[in-house]
Design a protein around this nucleic acid. Structure first.
Lengths: 342, 342
DNA sequence: TTGTATGCGTTATCAT
DNA sequence: ATGATAACGCATACAA
């Protein structure tokens, strides 16, 4: 009925509490035979540690750092509010959250920040940054130093990060494609694909997923080459100007990364919104408003609250040497229409 | 830096630990003035109780009962697996989960089970059942007895349940309608609406939401009266037979409650699936397979893992007299296509 | 009405 | 190499 405790182990193995603790926490100074006896007892009575009591005795606090891109991205803004919200939750009773803003396109600065964090300054790191050799190496160094690292939103596939907290971007692109294909009339037509920068791995994956599904399932739809606005509103306006001048028969727009504000503004100005199917990523105050106004047809997104809570839970589990509950940490690709807006 | 403890309160207020504890837990036997002094101290130093330590000292265990409809519903099956999964999670370290299966259409049995649970047998109840006066009263009795109650999946709006864990079914119906309207060609046509029973409040709400959005936004689409199969495969086959005989121009099917197995089987038999837009509720092994097979175009669902974890967290918070984190407990209306299947 | 002392399950600091 | 014992933050039986 009641869970066995360290006392039960001690009694069962005929040793003292201190010895039990030593083997439980893999501390030295115990004879091999004794270790075996204790481990046997643990298995025999089915002991499982009360992590809460352990943290109490240890006065454990988890210091986690979130490395986020600087700049005024709306999406990062929603992550920041989610972090703020997590601070007030039960979840963060013993965790201290620190946010580091780092220049996105400076891999060296990124790596330096990561490495600096490694010197016992924090107990775990969540990093949202484009893939780069520098970051990969820094993550490896952190991990070797015993600091758990999770990749947030954008994976660091070749590094040995402990976990990726985010969605499958290929599948997200395919999801967008399915919606685009089905929202468009059967006659199809050319679809514009815009991105802030196609260099980012997640943009590439989304584009790839989008193209491949359109290609196989909606032959009447034709994907135009990716236009890159580099998060510059002026550039975005000019790019769209050119695109629509070149082809007046465009039927849809897929925006696969940030910069939705500029995109929507530009489209609105052209008075083209009503006749286009427009699909974008990430639910922010801006895309929410556009969806409500009927300027956006659908949003593909990931729940940022879930994102940060999951990162925290995973880091904590790694610190404790626990397993995670996979299904709880699986971030879902969400489709948001006006009707199911949270 | 470190959080203040009961000792700090005691020192600040010039009283003993026991007195602090008495006012913290609203126990009698403390002079009004003393209470005020302690409360002042609590505010002054910004004390917030360490719930983990409290539970440890108290050897607290939370016994929660989940009342679920009996029968072999696939949806209830996924809830059961979610409960099973929760049992292995960190979340249930101190919680014991009990499942009661009750006949859905016997309000008296339902109420009796609820009332029986009230006699200090459990610390909280999650109930998934159709609304009825009997259940409403039983919930009220439980609450008066100090047992927190949450309504699961189906709300008990007139009872004073502590919380509703589930989705807005009107919005879910509207979401289905938006998808139906946009997936159908502009020419529209008649759409079949099938339910196991239209008496259930959630079915009614979905139907209402579906109809109202179709009515205002997709005038070319025409919703036929709801067909009730009462979870009987034979009846479902017969009903569909009649419906298609009466109107050969049906373009879509909206299944707003259970019984998707029978529906899909019947449609497949008629060879009509390829030319219909079919939208159903709840992701189960069955609807998942149908979606993958292209027999279903979209699924509207709610994450059952989230559902049970949320119910547990909310009940626990109520037991502790804590507030919940609203955003974490908001169940989302999820749209699942083949591409974003979890 | 208020205070003292002990215990919850675990860790960690001393001794031995 | 091992054991006794005092914390951790909180609750509570028992005294006063």
């Amino acid at each position: 009925m009641v869970r066995p405790t360290v006392h039960d182990i001690a009694r069962h193995a005929g040793v003292s509490l201190a010895t039990v603790d030593r083997v439980l926490n893999a501390r030295p100074g115990v004879r091999k035979q004794t270790v075996a006896r204790v481990e046997e007892a643990i298995r025999a009575i089915g002991y499982v540690r009360d992590q809460g009591a352990a943290n109490l005795a240890r006065r454990r606090v988890y210091r986690f750092a979130f490395l986020l891109p600087d700049g005024q991205s709306r999406f990062v803004g929603t992550i920041l509010s989610a972090l703020e919200e997590a601070r007030e939750s039960q979840l963060t009773d013993r965790v201290m959250l620190e946010v580091c803003h780092v220049p996105v396109h400076d891999p060296h600065a990124l790596a330096a920040t990561l490495v600096a964090l490694g010197a016992g300054k924090v107990d775990g790191v969540a990093v949202m940054a484009p893939e780069s050799p520098q970051v990969r190496d820094a993550v490896a160094r952190l991990r070797r130093g015993g600091t758990p690292v999770v990749a947030l939103v954008a994976d660091q596939p070749q590094s040995d990060r402990d976990h990726f907290v985010g969605i499958d971007n290929d599948a997200a692109g395919r999801t967008a494609a399915r919606l685009m294909g089905r929202f468009l009339p059967p006659s199809g037509g050319p679809v514009l694909v815009v991105a802030s920068s196609i260099r980012a791995r997640d943009s590439l994956e989304r584009r790839f997923g989008f193209d491949s599904l359109i290609g196989t399932e909606f032959p009447a739809v034709h994907c135009l080459p990716t236009l890159e606005a580099h998060d510059d509103p002026q550039r975005m306006a000019a790019i769209l100007q050119n695109a629509f001048a070149a082809r007046s028969d465009i039927v849809g727009v897929y925006s696969l990364s940030t910069g939705n504000g500029a995109l929507i503004d530009a489209l609105r100005e052209k008075g083209r919104l009503a006749r286009l199917v427009v699909i974008a990523h990430e639910l922010t105050p801006l895309t929410r408003a556009a969806l409500l106004a009927g300027e956006l047809d659908a949003i593909i997104t990931q729940n940022t609250g879930h994102l940060v809570r999951s990162a925290i839970r995973v880091l904590q589990a790694r610190c404790d040497g626990r397993e995670i509950l996979a299904s709880q940490e699986r971030i879902r690709i969400e489709i948001i229409l006006r009707e199911n807006l949270p």
